[in-house]
Amino acid sequence: MPDPNWQPRIVAFFCNWCTYTAADLAGVSRLKYAPNVRVIRLMCSGRVDPQFILDALARGADGVLIGGCHIGDCHYVEGNLKTLRRFQMLKRLLHDLGIEDQRVRLEWISASEGERVKMVINEMVEQVRTLGPLNLPKRFADWDREMTSLEESIREKEREEAEVVHA
């Protein structure tokens, strides 16, 4: 049974020029949205190394949101295009590895779209809430539980041997 107090944990990577600024605008406009997203600022969505997304998931994020400038609007000409290309393949890879589509999302949000920050975050939080926890750290621990009885028996044996030596 999932914990009724469970709240989705979402890590976001926002580009400095568009989506981070849009999130600032959402703040200045006092829009209210779900508190589940924690934003990491990068200069460009092109800096989002797929390792960051996998690492966030592996460390316990239930979802990852990437925000960049609209195509054609990148502050660095085409950084967001490179993100889009990586993202397409990464989505296929994640799909093959059992991560649901809605957990990892790429959104183009321009500096003036504070309202869209709110909309995207609220929508994503609800989608991830419906999917339930990903909680990979717990899954990793569950997977490794199959080794514990052997490890314990080895430790037990070692203890016995040590006692024999001391005796």
């Binding site: 390792q51 996998l54 690492d55 998931l57 592996a58 093959d96 590895l97 059992g98 991560i99 990903l134 990979l136 899954r139 990793f140 997977w143």
Partner: peptide, 8 residues
């Protein structure tokens, strides 16, 4: 790899 295995 960071995910180790098909997670589901």
């Amino acid at each position: 790899s960071l995910l180790r295995r098909k997670v589901d």
